[in-house]
Each structure stands twice: as C-alpha cells, then as structure tokens.
C-alpha cells in the first residue's frame, strides 16, 4: 500500500522529465500529470515494478479541458482554439490494494497519446471511445476505429465542448 505522493516520488526518480507534476490541491483526488508520449513506458513500469503492481485499469477517460481561446463566429456558435485535451487513467493494484490517477494532457490541435493497450488489454475500447468522442489519436493502437458513433461519422467528435451537430446525416435532418 502506497500513497500517491510516494508513487510520484518513485516515478520522478525513474522517469525524470516525463513526469510533469503532482497535483493534490483540488478536492478529493490527487493525480500525477505525465507526458502523453511516455505513458506506455510509465504504465509498464507501474504494472511490473514489484512494490507497485498496478495490474488493473479501472477506467480511462478522455476529457476536454476547454482551456483554449474561445471564439464566437457570426452565428453565435463557439469554437475553441488551442488548449488541451486530456486522458485520465484510473489504475489500481488488486494485490497491493492501492489506487492512482494519471493524467496526460495533449495539444488540442494535434492530440496524440501513446496507447496503453499493450499494458492493460482492457484499455482498448476505452481508448477507442476517447478517440470516438474527442478525436484523441492513440499512437500504436491496434484497431483505432469509431466505436459508439457510426463508422462513417465525419462531423467531428461529439464530446468536445465546441462540437456542432451536422444539418444532415445520410439525407436525414439531424435536429429533427
């Protein structure tokens, strides 16, 4: 059993600059911010290291931080330029009974995160969902397709804060 801070220190020692920050000031849950292009290595370490043993991925969620510059076009619709999209990893060790939250933030214009499917197979569909909903590209993912939306959906990523409904989808009016 280790606290998040101890784990942060171990990681900082091992990976140096890949580990960006430890945040514990916000209510309830502390989390570690990591480099999105090094997530796979960090995850593998977290899983295999004998006093960490994070063998299970509880949850993986994409989040739109909506911290860019908000612009309004002439119709009053909002678009967001710049800022970040994030991926949260909630992991736990079923053997040592401790939990940890990782956060990887990536550029909104070119959102790229390395996949962790190699480490936890259960991440597969979660990552596909994050791609489907936020457009986050998971590098090296074996099968990055849309999952909940139709395969031919070409009107953007619905859970982004600046998503706009298309007028028509396959000849059907969308806001019916």
């Amino acid at each position: 059993m280790k606290t998040a801070e101890e784990i942060f220190n171990t990681l900082k020692e091992k990976f140096g600059s890949s580990i960006v920050e430890f945040k514990a000031d916000k209510p309830v849950e502390p989390f570690i911010i990591v480099n999105p292009l090094e997530v796979d290595k960090i995850s593998l370490f977290l899983k295999d290291e004998k006093d960490l043993l994070f063998d299970s991925l509880m949850n993986l969620s994409g989040v739109d931080d909506a911290n860019g510059i908000k612009e309004k076009d002439d119709k009053g619709l909002e678009t967001i330029k710049g800022g970040t999209l994030s991926v949260y990893y909630h992991i736990e060790s079923t053997k040592l009974r401790h939990k940890l939250t990782l956060k990887a933030s990536t550029d909104r214009e070119k959102p790229e995160v390395v996949t962790v499917t190699e480490v936890w197979k259960g991440a597969d569909w979660h990552e596909r969902e994050a791609y489907d909903m936020y457009g986050i590209i998971f590098l090296n993912h074996p099968d990055l397709r849309r999952i909940l939306m139709p395969y031919d959906w070409e009107f953007g990523f619905p859970l982004r804060k600046d998503y706009k409904n298309p007028e028509f989808y396959q000849g059907m009016k969308v806001p019916y």
Partner: peptide
C-alpha cells in the same frame, strides 16, 4: 454546486 475538483467512485 460542488467545488471545483474531480472524483472517481465505484
């Protein structure tokens, strides 16, 4: 109106 923050509960 919860404070700014995040939680994962299962």
């Amino acid at each position: 109106k919860p404070p700014e923050g995040q939680i994962y509960t299962r």
